[in-house]
């Protein structure tokens, strides 16, 4: 029996997904999911490795819209002249992920669908056995909140924050055909089932329509290159003065505040962002500090907009 599969087309990948229903893991770059396998957090028998599908690796601009293949590596995105020139926010977000060597393997599609993280869940099996499993593993309660029945693990995708701030859309291939939806709509406010994609669907492309008039990006983490984000803020203002501020790393899904600059105030922005963030103490940084840093980052963005 063969357990590792390297399809050469999306059609083959979808047929494999159908065949191994419920017992497969999709590898994009594999830089994150490989750790889940080592820690016995992912025990599916079949691996479907998308790295052999060349058609998923592309950067192209058609009619003013940037199209990124889901298997484009973060390094290719950073090195692209087109992206550096017209979409520096995407390049900046990609550059803030992991290390230069990992970025040569890690993909944009993989980063958008990176699993939610929590200090009580993303640990070795021995650690989890010692501490007591949480409800996302085999336990019955959330260890972070001391017994709640919801999972609050954090969405830690940096590129998701940037692409949502840019109003990106994604293309999904399913056995029934192609569907497109705004990226922001796929994330669910749940730590366990963090997206609403159908089981046998493959993210194939990301389309970015907006070339923003202004952009801003900042990421908070304990150790550069080592840690996942503790707070990522990506913000854009388009030619119609619509501000799109996206926060990630502080809640179960990215938090988007979208409002015209005419009516937006700093207090209003901070209040909306803080209200929507379900931040709990599940990161290396203390909870109080992370909450305070939301205010600090939003204030910095607000000041930068006023200066511009």
């Amino acid at each position: 029996m063969d357990y590792y599969h390297s399809p050469s087309s999306i059609k083959d990948a979808l047929s494999m997904a159908g065949k191994f229903s419920g017992n497969y893991t999709i590898f994009a770059g594999g830089t994150d999911i490989q750790i889940y396998r080592k820690q016995q957090l992912d025990t599916n028998e079949h691996i479907i490795d998308l790295s052999g599908i060349d058609e998923l690796n592309s950067i192209a601009t058609k009619e003013g819209i940037l199209h990124l293949g889901a298997m484009t590596t973060l390094d290719e995105i950073i090195s692209s002249d087109e992206i550096q020139l017209h979409y520096p926010l995407i390049a900046e977000a990609a550059k803030s992920v992991a290390t230069p060597v990992l970025r040569k393997t890690a993909t944009i599609g993989g980063n958008l669908l990176v699993k939610n993280r929590c200090v009580f869940y993303n640990q070795s099996q021995a650690w989890r056995n010692g501490m007591g499993s949480c409800l996302r593993d085999v336990g019955t309660i959330c260890q972070v909140t001391g017994g709640k029945k919801d999972c609050y693990s954090r969405n830690v995708s940096d590129t998701a924050a940037a692409l949502i701030a840019l109003g990106a859309e994604i293309t999904l291939m399913t056995p029934d055909g192609i569907t497109q939806k705004p990226l922001k709509d796929i994330y669910l406010p749940c730590g366990i089932k963090f997206h609403n994609l159908e089981e046998h669907s493959i993210l194939t492309q990301i389309s970015v329509p907006i070339k923003p008039k202004k952009w801003w990006y900042k990421k908070l983490r304990l150790r550069k290159t080592l840690d996942f984000t503790s707070l990522t803020v990506a913000a854009t203002v388009d030619i119609n003065s619509i501000a799109r501020v996206c926060l990630n790393g502080v809640s179960m899904s990215p938090i988007l505040v979208e409002q015209t600059m005419d009516t937006l105030t700093q207090e209003n922005l901070t209040r909306q962002a803080r209200k929507n963030c379900k931040t709990v103490d599940n990161d290396l940084m203390p909870l109080k500090y992370r909450r305070e840093m939301i205010n600090v980052f939003l204030e910095e963005w607000w000041d930068s907009i006023e200066i511009i």
């Binding site: 590792y4 390297s6 594999g30 691996i47 490795d49 060597v101 990992l102 040569k104 393997t105």
Partner: peptide, 21 residues
């Protein structure tokens, strides 16, 4: 980064790379 090797000239972390890839 201790396990870095070159795969088709590109540096990769061998602890994260499936052998079958």
């Amino acid at each position: 980064g201790s396990c870095t090797v070159l795969l088709d000239g590109k540096p990769v972390l061998s602890c994260m790379t499936p052998t079958l890839r």
